[in-house]
């Protein structure tokens, strides 16, 4: 097939039996601005860690909301908590505390 520079996404759906919402439920309460993220990706565009790796905060927030949390710990371990994302976020999500709280949730539920 001719390569048009893009491909079709594979068919996928959320498996609710496997979805783990514990992190989401914890962070939602502890840092309510978590709820107002619109997944615009500004945070990821400005991310200091993103300069060196595939670290992607937007994706992480989305995955946590879906309950797909495997891999969150490894991803988050790259964040330097520098705060660029907090300043850049157009929605005023307190991303630094979101990250801080996700870490607490990971610890709390030994994930």
């Amino acid at each position: 097939m001719k390569n048009f520079g893009f491909s079709l996404s594979k068919d996928r759906q959320i498996d609710f039996d496997k979805s783990d919402k514990r992190i989401m439920d914890f962070v939602k309460i502890e840092e309510p601005t978590f709820n107002i993220c619109i997944a615009c990706g500004t945070c990821t565009a400005t991310c200091s860690a993103g300069n060196f790796t595939e670290m992607n905060l937007r994706k992480m927030i989305t995955l946590i909301k879906r309950g797909e949390i495997t891999g969150v710990r490894a991803e988050l371990s790259k964040c330097m908590l520098c705060g660029k994302c907090s300043l850049a976020c157009p929605r005023g999500v307190n991303t630094r505390n979101v990250i801080f709280k996700i870490n607490q949730a990971l610890e709390k539920y030994s994930l």
């Binding site: 988050l76 330097m80 870490n103 607490q104 990971l106």
Partner: peptide, 12 residues
């Protein structure tokens, strides 16, 4: 006492 991050900066 409240911080629980466990960073890995090997990528740097």
């Amino acid at each position: 006492e409240f911080a629980s991050g466990n960073n890995n900066f090997d990528y740097l």
